[in-house]
Design a protein around this nucleic acid. Structure first.
Lengths: 342, 342
DNA sequence: TATGTTTTTTTACGCGCGTAAAATTTAAAT
DNA sequence: ATTTAAATTTTACGCGCGTAAAAAAACATA
């Protein structure tokens, strides 16, 4: 290594004995040059460690090798995990992911889209805020940049959506709860995205099908501090004895975590055994749900599948060009995760 | 808005009536032009929405407006929170933060530094892996890019370090635990960074000072799956009745969360009241610690202060240039957070 | 060896903007 | 009104690389 400092591709062409245009081709796609020249380049690369100036590279390329990854709320480990998987898969495919979090704020989401647009990314993997998203801004963005939505859909926008099949996953756990004890009520908060709405609907359908009255409790509070809402509203409801059932299916795990804290504070034992006053279940299999007290029964989203499919879909889109095909939607099934809370 | 599509600064100069070099100045620093011209520009900007090509901008600028933010493990909400604060403060100061997570892997951390270097950032806010960091790679990086370390220090590298004063925070909670019940033992895992070591030392010192035997339990397991380690090792220790004290001070909250799960599973009631078999305390005031069962007694890191100071320090560094000054180190005090677990 | 095909080299231009220098205008101060 | 300082315009060049076109070289095939 070392020897002379290489300042640009011109100099690297000199010392490697390969012409600059060929080098340019190589750095754009290593497989686009003959193997013999490729090895020559890579040998020189080991000796002199040179990296082309990314700014000069991207300036005239119609398409960069950048992939934008946008999640609605990064402080949620669920999205952190998803982001991590998406990042890695982009990296493996030779792209450069850049990660953004909207932190639950519309303004931030719009700013991200703006700054993203000016980076001319090859494509974007977009987990939108949902209800709080600025549809107009998102539409405009998607017209310019190939976009795959995950987690939450925005109808009619973007090239594809990959998510979970709430109409499969929710009945799954409703069935389980009904056959193992008192039929559940549904505990939700102000819906932040379409998933929340679908889960409520799916709950109602499933309960109807089983011949039970579907009772939904809507907690006050909004934003992305789900645990807080679950806790505070849980406390209130317990105090007023307003839970219509001792079995509570929460719209998501984070809400359930908050509710568990409330139950604990109120001395209500949660679980299935005798001596338990309540059962609490969630949805998503949040990374921390294994460590709640008691461990949370929930239905796991297949986020491996979701991330893989999202990335694959985007790459196909990028390689084949946007051929005006209809938006594709892929939903993965959830798996019941039985733990001690219900 | 709209009318004609502006393709570059040249065209924007035409329609705005401002010369291109002045526009260039404006986009680099809006305050560097006369207010009258500034308003002219901003009026035109509202009409025609034009954004200079970032790649062309950064190509020849010696210094970009980019700030790298690197955290060791983003799936940890503690770091997610820190990252969020850092991001926002960079944004507010007119810089563009780009976020990276090393996901606990040295290779990834090195890759990040590599890709970061090629982006010529104005500076980097760096939360290193710690023990797993590649000192040589980090040193090399810091020679090229102004770097402020936070959370974990790497001695002798970078321009500044901002973190918590473990030798204040740990005695704080040790004192509390000792005066409110049985003196604690210290539960740690393979240290991932200097903080872990310092906390152990601080524990020993504090116990010595109070005239108690300082007993440390080292859990097997490494990596960043702290809850898992705390849970599994906790189970083992409880089964074998090897906890030397019924009061356990954990090296951090995530470990404590795992231990709480183990206690719950083993039917050990945690808390201070009568009828409680154990007391468990943590360190950091992790965002989820409020929602554990029971809520976790811990000592809060002042991450507001840490992030603010980190960003301020970096900006000073950037503006004043690196004048070979000695590395500065700032430590903030922790605050005792008494909840029900101890 | 001759032929056709693929790859590389040579040459040359352009991208969009930074920036330096000199000329000019504007604002502030006397 | 005059002087002085500061900001802006004009002009011009350069950054590092993408990329197109034509010429040359390398390879494949018969």
């Amino acid at each position: 290594m070392a020897e002379r400092k290489i300042r640009n591709m011109e100099e690297f062409a000199e010392i490697s004995g390969i012409s600059r245009p060929t080098l340019s081709k190589y750095f754009n796609d290593p497989d686009s040059v003959r193997t013999s020249t490729r090895t020559k380049i890579e040998q020189a690369l080991e000796q002199y460690d040179f990296r082309p100036n990314i700014y000069a590279m991207n300036q005239n390329r119609k398409m960069t090798k950048t992939i934008g990854v946008v999640v609605p709320y990064l402080a949620d480990p669920f999205f952190a995990e998803i982001a991590r998987n998406l990042e890695r898969q982009c990296l493996d495919a030779g792209y450069s992911p850049i990660l953004f979090s909207s932190h639950g704020e519309q303004k931030l989401e719009n700013d991200i889209l703006d700054s993203l647009r000016s980076q001319k990314p090859a494509g974007v993997l977009f987990g939108p805020l949902g209800r709080a998203s600025d549809r107009g801004a998102v539409e405009k963005f998607c017209r310019e940049v190939p976009t795959v939505f995950f987690d939450a859909n925005i109808e009619g926008v973007g090239e594809a959506f990959i998510g979970s099949d709430n109409f499969q996953s929710v009945p799954l756990i409703v069935d389980y709860l009904c056959r193992s004890g008192e039929p559940p009520c549904f505990f939700e908060m102000q819906p932040v995205n379409p998933n929340a709405n679908k889960r409520r609907k799916a709950f109602k359908q499933a309960m109807d099908r089983l011949g039970h009255e579907p009772v939904v409790i809507r907690a006050d509070g909004d934003g992305w501090g789900f645990e807080e809402v679950g806790y505070k509203e849980g406390l209130k409801l317990i105090e007023k004895r307003q839970f219509p059932s001792s079995t509570v299916l929460c719209s998501n795990d984070r809400l359930a975590i908050g509710l568990l804290a409330a139950c604990f504070e109120k001395g209500l034992r949660v679980g299935l055994g005798s001596g338990c006053a309540m059962r609490v279940a969630g949805h998503d299999d949040h990374p921390f749900s294994r460590f709640t007290c008691p461990p949370l029964t929930t239905v796991a989203q297949d986020y491996r599948a979701i991330t893989s499919k999202s990335v694959e879909t985007l790459f196909q889109l990028i390689e084949s060009g946007r051929d005006g095909a209809e938006k594709s939607e892929t939903l993965f099934e959830g798996k019941l995760v039985m733990r001690e809370s219900a």
